[in-house]
Design a binder for these strands. Sequence first.
DNA 1: TCAATGTTGTACGACACCGTACTGGATCAT
DNA 2: ATGATCCAGTACGGTGTCGTACAACATTGA
Lengths: 234, 234
Amino acid sequence: MASAIGYRGKNRLLAALPADDFDRYFSALERITLTLRSVIQGAAQPVKHVYFVEDGVSSVLTIMDDGSAVEVGMIGSEGMIGIAALLDGGSAPPQVIVQIPGTVLRMPIALCKCAFDESAGVRTVMLRFAADMLGLSTQTAACNRLHSIEQRCARWLLMAYDRVGSETMPMTHEFLAYMLGVRRAGVTTTAQELQRSGLIRYRQGQIVITDLEGLKALACECRRLDHERLNRML
Amino acid sequence: MASAIGYRGKNRLLAALPADDFDRYFSALERITLTLRSVIQGAAQPVKHVYFVEDGVSSVLTIMDDGSAVEVGMIGSEGMIGIAALLDGGSAPPQVIVQIPGTVLRMPIALCKCAFDESAGVRTVMLRFAADMLGLSTQTAACNRLHSIEQRCARWLLMAYDRVGSETMPMTHEFLAYMLGVRRAGVTTTAQELQRSGLIRYRQGQIVITDLEGLKALACECRRLDHERLNRML
DNA sequence: TCAATGTTGTACGACACCGTACTGGATCAT
DNA sequence: ATGATCCAGTACGGTGTCGTACAACATTGA
């Protein structure tokens, strides 16, 4: 038999797949560059693809009738976009939006579903990620109820950092407020405090983490649990 | 071949299984009666069983280091307890606690995992439920951030009602507060308003819904979405 | 270079909810 | 029956966040 080639890129799910499964099912992957704040999934459009993130970070949002929104999940190279559709084609897809630009590998969802159905190895990897997302969203549900803007803001920055590995990220107060489900003015006030404390620096549309440890100390325990989950995906 | 018998009880997951899959894999089910407020899963103990709910309601909680807690999922006869362990044995089990007493069918998790791995029919049913729980927890994450105690309180009562089919339920203000992640005094105030409005009645440790439609009108949209998800599980 | 647009700074009254604490009534166990 | 325990009623100062609004600054495009 031909020796398996497998996947050598950055996505942890694809990397965790048995090489021969990868060769057999994932040859149709197409590399796409995602631009800042573009919407991958959402609203009315049916979901046609799943996306394996190589670089950058995307957020999963729950949006209410009045347009208010809250982030309920964050996905970097440890995961994929479209896991819900993989589990159950009938559920409405949540909105997914690009936070930090990067590249993803895209494939038709039907093909991925087929690999998922046929290969136990594929299932193991993707179900682990599904459990991960479930854990993240339950943690976020509690965090949103129990922790302050400051704590959650610090958590958000660290979660993004943990996924992208860079202290600098493109992010406005406005958009961060949208993610956290709070007022933009609330984020501005909080960001000022963080900056005064020397934990971050920011200017128009960009935030830089300058004191990682200090930020960790300020963030709620939810960030630590997220970090442990992330490590478990390696 | 012998004709399949299948399952004729109230649990919707078991009922949705192909009859021959049920006969083959689910013969070891053991009926258990759960008592009010007992803890099914949680904390340190490893999870040994999965539970298919026939009657009653259980809640999934996220608990913080300081002991504060928030409900992140609710499970009635439409579902099962232990789905996370089924998806990924490595994740820490969340706490699950009995809200409304009832009976469940229990089986060793390893056996269920085996059925899940071997039968596509079993997977379809259980993954649909997993997607359901993911949807519920993401909705709850947003709800916890965006909606008032009154709205969430009404939502909670209706979610329990939708699962158990009874207007009367054993519940103290203290415990409801624990579920919603708010003060007990806050629930008392809210419950008083609901009672004055004629939507509920309550006395020591018991709440009765007296105006279903009125309560629906008061609850946030999250309850409607939960109701639609529930219907989809039939 | 100038206007348009996007981003951040700031202010202020309103209010939902918190933390805490104490009371009285209901229920339970012996 | 009677303590002990659980549950609900109530109060009050404190505060985190809201809603809104406007101004100042940075960036972009023509």
